[in-house]
Write a protein that binds this DNA or RNA. Sequence first.
DNA 1: ATTCTACATTATAATAGTTCTAAACTGTTG
DNA 2: CAACAGTTTAGAACTATTATAATGTAGAAT
Lengths: 137, 137
Amino acid sequence: MLNNSHYIDKLRSSGLRPTKQRIKICEILFNTEKTFHFTINDLVKKISKATNDKISLATVYNTVHAFKKKGYLKEIPINSDQSYFDTNTSHHHHFYDENQKDLMDIDDADVEPVKINTRIPGKKIKSVEVLVKVEDA
Amino acid sequence: MLNNSHYIDKLRSSGLRPTKQRIKICEILFNTEKTFHFTINDLVKKISKATNDKISLATVYNTVHAFKKKGYLKEIPINSDQSYFDTNTSHHHHFYDENQKDLMDIDDADVEPVKINTRIPGKKIKSVEVLVKVEDA
DNA sequence: ATTCTACATTATAATAGTTCTAAACTGTTG
DNA sequence: CAACAGTTTAGAACTATTATAATGTAGAAT
């Protein structure tokens, strides 16, 4: 509950009303040194640890989608039974450990830029995402 | 309904009993020149077009998972409300058109090999998959 | 400050994809 | 052919997510 004015400004400037639920979720998602990955379920757990006032599940979904739309979160393409989100919105790719079901960033310096030498007429590239699946050696 | 003995052998040799349901699904998935992408729902529709004896939804799921496990199908990592499968099990990447919700192969010759210059200790790379999201230009 | 209004939150219901269950069925082996 | 393990099946159950509609609230206008 340090300095929320930053989040309030951020929310307001992107056209989102700074409600106490959104501010709390900002604190949980963005008050850390390190970025991290989470599912909605993870986030709900973090929220209930962090506060006594519970936030409705619908609001959690709404907020995560709103933040994704505003570019504060990225969704990671992975086939899983649930969606994964990333607080690291800079360009980078992922390792996915199928044994531990663990998702890790790959430092962008460790991936050669992916060149796609073909295009689809009338379409432009929106993103290029690499998922490296790993397993026990 | 051409020559099923091929599928029967294939199934038997991978430890799957060649039931009429599995053979029918093999015909639908593998009797084509071109490989293709499908969801479970797509497959169910194809089946009901192709045969009068309906196959239970549970069997479709079971069979697709069995075929995936045996390496006859690949699942494509994409966040969608449903799972996408690919009868093309060779190495290649995908375009995903978010407007049309259309998934397309990228010819492997059109993608520079993706170099990952880092490793996770104790893990080996199982696959490297590139998903190129496109949108209306 | 009070009122107004559009935006947010909420509990709950609804939906959709997928998995589970347990009974009936069938391919294979002896 | 008998026996058994693997398979299919319908339907129930489960899970993640979205929709609904009533209530609440932030910010602007008065």
